[in-house]
Amino acid sequence: MAFRKLGTLLPLERRVLELAVRHAPAGVYGFALAQELADQQGATRLVSHGTLYKALDRMRRAGLLAADWEDADAAADEGRPRRRIYVVTAEGNRALQAAVLGDADPRLGAAPA
């Protein structure tokens, strides 16, 4: 289990937010996220169901992502189950920008003299 300071993003959360921003405003669903996360890292294995959906659930509860089920008829037309679509929120955008700014400002990561 990962521990972090309040208000900071875990590496997985940051990568998910980056992908959600890239897919805004349409949003992105679980398996597509798993594939793109693996592609980004050049990994051969997809992220586990437990890790991915627990992170998405946590981010949704924190207000970083909004989740909505797609239209049942549209999914039925394609002969597949409904997907849950995640869209980045304003809060998620702010959190990602703060993380990027934190990377850019070396003082934030510097040890005290």
């Binding site: 679980g30 398996f31 798993a34 169901h49 959906y53 597949r80 849950r84």
Partner: peptide, 8 residues
């Protein structure tokens, strides 16, 4: 959500 992922 997981069943949709398995299907995908």
């Amino acid at each position: 959500e997981v069943l949709a992922d398995l299907h995908d």
